[in-house]
């Protein structure tokens, strides 16, 4: 039997660095999501970047610490919400066609000058929805992989 105590978290230096960088990664991810219709990137890339902050948290602080902050049902609901918002926005223009950009064509919302943040109609909302879904899904997948692994140390 191996009685070596398994520490799942990392040392002080890593933790301190992680504390400083996790918010920055999150902000950068949020930037990618919200500028999805203007710059390269979008919902998926931004969501994955934000989930990267979660990965860093898991590695730096360990699985025990991550488990305390992870609620499976909440993330599951968030992921569903992301998908449903995307679908709902796509259905907004159903009177004309599925995926019809009603917000932009009719100038209801997000109808600013092209190239500005509040433009492109449903695209920013869809990017937010996709970002939410990807973030929640990747975090859930990562937690599942680290919690239910079959091999032992």
């Amino acid at each position: 039997m191996n009685h070596r105590s398994v520490r799942s978290d990392m040392g002080l230096i890593v933790k301190t660095t992680a504390r400083a960088t996790i918010p920055l990664i999150g902000i950068f991810g949020a930037y990618i999501v919200s500028h999805g219709h203007l710059t390269p990137g979008g919902g998926f890339q931004g969501g994955a970047t934000i989930a990267g902050a979660g990965v860093l948290f898991l590695i730096a602080f360990g699985l025990e610490e991550a488990k305390k902050r992870y609620d499976h049902h909440a993330y599951s609901a968030l992921e569903s919400l992301g998908g449903l918002v995307f679908l709902g926005i796509a259905m907004l223009g159903l009177s004309v066609a599925f995926f019809y950009n009603m917000l932009w064509r009719k100038g209801i919302a997000f109808a600013g000058k092209p190239g500005t943040l509040l433009s492109a109609g449903y695209l920013p909302i869809m990017n937010l929805a996709v970002g939410l879904k990807v973030f929640a899904g990747l975090i859930s997948a990562m937690m599942a992989i680290s919690m239910y692994r079959r091999w032992k140390e």
């Binding site: 049902h73 569903s80 998908g83 679908l87 159903l94």
Partner: peptide, 21 residues
């Protein structure tokens, strides 16, 4: 025709929500 995609897609997305009930 679009409901051929919308219905199952909505069903799939809301399945985790419905299982909360």
């Amino acid at each position: 025709l679009p409901f051929l995609i919308i219905v199952p897609l909505m069903g799939a997305f809301s399945m985790p929500l419905s299982s909360l009930l």
